[in-house]
C-alpha cells in the first residue's frame, strides 16, 4: 500500500505537468486532444474507497485546470470519473477478484478486460469534458468529433504509458 501511494504521488507529479506542458499542445486536426493525466485515476487501486478516489480525482482535475486556465472543467469531469470508476470496473470484472489492493493493469486484469475498462473510462472522461465545454460553446458536431477522436488519441497514448510502467513492474 505504501508503495502504491508513492507511485500515485509520482504519477501526479509527472502526469499533471506533462499534460500542461506537452499534451495540451498536442491537439491533432483541431479535434483530438490527448487527456493523459486520467491514467492516474484509471490506475487507482480498486479497493480504495470511493471517497478517497473522488478527492484524488478532484485535486488532480483542479491541478490540471489551474495549469490550463479552465476553472472547474477538468475538476468536475475528474470527480465524476473517479465516482464511476468502481461501477465501470465491475462491468468487466466480477466482485470476487477485487485484486487485493492492486492497481488495475494488464497483469492483474488480463489484457481484454483491462482494455475495455480503460477505453470505457477514457470515453466517459472525454464525453464529460466536452459536454461541460459545450455549456460555454455549443456545437454538437464539433463536440462529437472531439469526444470520439480525443478518446482514440488519449487511449493510444495512455496505453503506451501503461505498457512502459507494465514492463517496469
Amino acid at each position: 500500500m505504501n508503495k502504491t501511494v508513492i507511485i500515485l504521488i509520482a504519477l501526479f507529479l509527472v502526469l499533471v505537468p506533462a499534460q500542461a506542458v506537452i499534451f495540451n499542445n498536442l491537439i491533432l486536426f483541431n479535434v483530438a486532444l490527448p487527456l493523459v493525466f486520467i491514467y492516474l485515476i484509471i490506475s487507482l487501486p480498486v479497493t480504495l474507497s470511493t471517497n478517497w478516489s473522488i478527492t484524488i480525482g478532484f485535486v488532480t482535475g483542479l491541478a490540471v485546470d489551474i495549469f490550463s486556465d479552465t476553472p472547474g472543467m477538468n475538476a468536475l469531469a475528474c470527480t465524476t470519473l473517479a465516482f464511476v470508476r468502481k461501477p465501470v470496473y465491475h462491468l468487466y470484472m466480477s466482485f470476487d477478484d477485487d485484486l487485493m489492493g492492486m492497481r488495475p493493469s494488464i497483469a492483474t486484469m488480463g489484457s481484454a478486460a483491462y482494455f475495455k475498462y480503460m477505453l470505457t473510462m477514457v470515453f466517459i472522461y472525454c464525453f464529460m469534458l466536452f459536454a461541460i465545454e459545450a455549456f460555454q460553446f455549443f456545437n454538437f458536431r464539433l463536440m462529437l468529433m472531439r469526444t470520439i477522436f480525443s478518446t482514440i488519441f488519449s487511449f493510444i497514448i495512455i496505453y503506451a504509458i501503461d505498457s512502459l510502467s507494465f514492463k517496469r513492474s
Binding site: L62, G72, A75
Partner: peptide, 10 residues
C-alpha cells in the same frame, strides 16, 4: 466536489 467544481466553472 461537484458543487465546488460548478462554482469554479460558472
Amino acid at each position: 466536489f461537484v458543487v465546488a467544481s460548478c462554482m469554479l466553472l460558472f
